[in-house]
Design a protein around this nucleic acid. Sequence first.
DNA 1: GCTTGAACCTCCAGTAGCTAGAGGATGTAC
DNA 2: GTACATCCTCTAGCTACTGGAGGTTCAAGC
Lengths: 142, 142
Amino acid sequence: MLTIGSLAQKTGTKVQTIRYYEQIGMMPEPGRTAGGQRRYGNPELDRLAFIRHARQLGFSLEAIRELLDLSDQPDRPCHEADAIARRQLKQVEQRLARLEALRTELKRMVHECSGGQTADCRVLEVLRDHSECLTDHAGIGA
Amino acid sequence: MLTIGSLAQKTGTKVQTIRYYEQIGMMPEPGRTAGGQRRYGNPELDRLAFIRHARQLGFSLEAIRELLDLSDQPDRPCHEADAIARRQLKQVEQRLARLEALRTELKRMVHECSGGQTADCRVLEVLRDHSECLTDHAGIGA
DNA sequence: GCTTGAACCTCCAGTAGCTAGAGGATGTAC
DNA sequence: GTACATCCTCTAGCTACTGGAGGTTCAAGC
């Protein structure tokens, strides 16, 4: 049985954030002691770790809620889960492509820099390319 | 010369967001027409595209500002740029590892699902692991 | 050259996702 | 049985946007 503080520490979350997640329904209402303090188990630890990592990867709480729902309801209609999984997969692959481009460029900079010369910097260029995301932008946001 | 609206469209940004970035100094103050309307060129387009993609990858505006500074001052002290690049590279590689794990799991779900059966879902497990980030959490946030 | 409508302007208020602090109760270790 | 770290609720503030009111500008068509 974990206190909210130790759960926070294990997941690198602020105590307040955990209570906030409970408030908005991202985390379940945990058991309480006689005095009213929250006590958590391992399932909550896993769930919170997932949420935090997914947030660090740039997923919205809404998207994370969807992923968690996939996990919560393993016997839900298959086509529905499949559609969500496919949609998330597409997003994940787009992110991977961009992150890999950024990694390559940062590596190049680190290497050239170790050579003693500050190189011309092209970080900006590597995330400029719209070829993979034109479908996302086209006609949107105007 | 681009209007703020076409810049917004090309980058998938809201017009308001561009003005917000200008306000907080993430985007430079652009030229204006006699009537006071903003006009942008290609450098601003690249910069904004970079910001947006980096945001989608989960970087804070502060981290993005650092990356942009690398780009803005190619002749700054080498060790400084190098330190920033290395720090960002480390973050990027952590993100890549987690995203790859998530991709694998989503792929597995999509495959098993196409088989006609909703599989047991382990999305949650794949981002549970703390082995790579214990150093980040240890002692923090409590 | 004048009109007209989409797009622009500023300013301000609202949202998502946290984060910090006040003021007080609880729990465990001596 | 008393310290004192941690917990509780509540409220307010912060980052990163987003939307709307009320008014101005620009470019296309007459």
